[in-house]
Amino acid sequence: MGRRVLLIEDEPNIIEALSFILTRDGWTVHTHSDGTTAAARVRTGSPEVVVLDAMLPGRSGFDILRELRADPSTAAVPVLMLTARGQERDRDLALRLGATEFMTKPFANAEVLAEVRRLAGG
């Protein structure tokens, strides 16, 4: 069994792409697409890395991030935040709220993979 990554994302095709490249790299990929229950899923699944989309149905990724950081059991989980809006504001907000890394869509597969590896190792 490989290392666990939790993918919180609602676009089915992006989920498929990320799952494909991460699985091929030896990760066990769990996916979750509902914003309201995402934080709980992080707590119960205790993944090594979380990939978190900023815009989710039900609840924004920023809110989820805030909750994760406030909870001692998940405060230290590395989070890679993805956003499709690509504004400076979003980047600042994500980093201030405690995102470990931040990337805008569209991303290069290799970069995502490198970031996930780095977060898991660091």
């Binding site: 494909f20 490249i21 569209p106 991303f107 290069a108």
Partner: peptide
């Protein structure tokens, strides 16, 4: 608009490189 354009673009870019 940015979001709606970048989302399909993400899938396209990712799968193209795959």
């Amino acid at each position: 608009i940015s979001h709606e354009l970048r989302t399909p673009m993400t899938s396209i870019r990712s799968f193209s490189s795959i």
